[in-house]
Simulated scan of single mutants.
Amino acid sequence: MKILIIYTHPNHNSLSYAFLQKVIKGSNENPNIKELHVVDLYEEGFNPLLVFNEQKRRRDMYRDPHLEKYREQITWADKIVFVYPIWWGRPPAMLMGYIDQLFAANFAYKDKKGLLPEGQLKGKSVVCVSTMKGPTNYPLLWLNNAHKILMKKALFHFVGIKKVKFFEFGNMESPKGKQTKKLEKIYRYFKKVDC
Rank of each mutant, 00 (worst) to 15 (best):
P175H: 01
I74W: 03
K192C: 05
E35F: 03
P139T: 09
H37D: 11
L116D: 13
G114R: 07
E54S: 10
E168D: 10
I6T: 09
I24F: 02
D40L: 01
R58L: 15
F158M: 11
P139M: 11
N145V: 10
I80A: 04
I74E: 05
D60Q: 10
A93Y: 12
H12N: 11
K122R: 15
M94T: 12
K122D: 13
V193R: 01
F166E: 10
K192H: 07
T180F: 08
D40W: 00
K153H: 13
L102H: 06
I24C: 03
Y109V: 08
L121F: 02
F167D: 07
C195R: 13
A18G: 06
C195G: 14
P48L: 07
G89F: 07
K163W: 08
Y62M: 07
K113M: 14
Y42P: 00
K79Q: 14
E118Q: 04
N47Y: 07
R59K: 13
I80M: 03
R63C: 13
E35D: 15
P65A: 10
R63S: 14
L116W: 12
I5A: 03
S130D: 06
F169M: 09
W87C: 10
F156C: 02
Q73V: 07
A77D: 09
K153S: 11
S14Y: 01
I149C: 08
L36K: 03
V127C: 01
S14R: 02
F107P: 01
Y62S: 10
F169H: 01
P65S: 10
V126Q: 01
D100W: 03
D100E: 14
G97V: 14
P135K: 06
L20F: 02
V23T: 12
D194W: 06
L95M: 10
D111Q: 08
N137F: 05
V129G: 00
F190M: 07
Y17L: 08
Q179K: 11
L183M: 10
Q120W: 06
K79N: 13
R188A: 05
G160D: 09
Y84Q: 07
L143P: 00
N47D: 15
C195D: 14
E184Q: 05
H147D: 15
I80N: 00
T131A: 04
A146N: 11
W142Q: 12
L115Q: 13
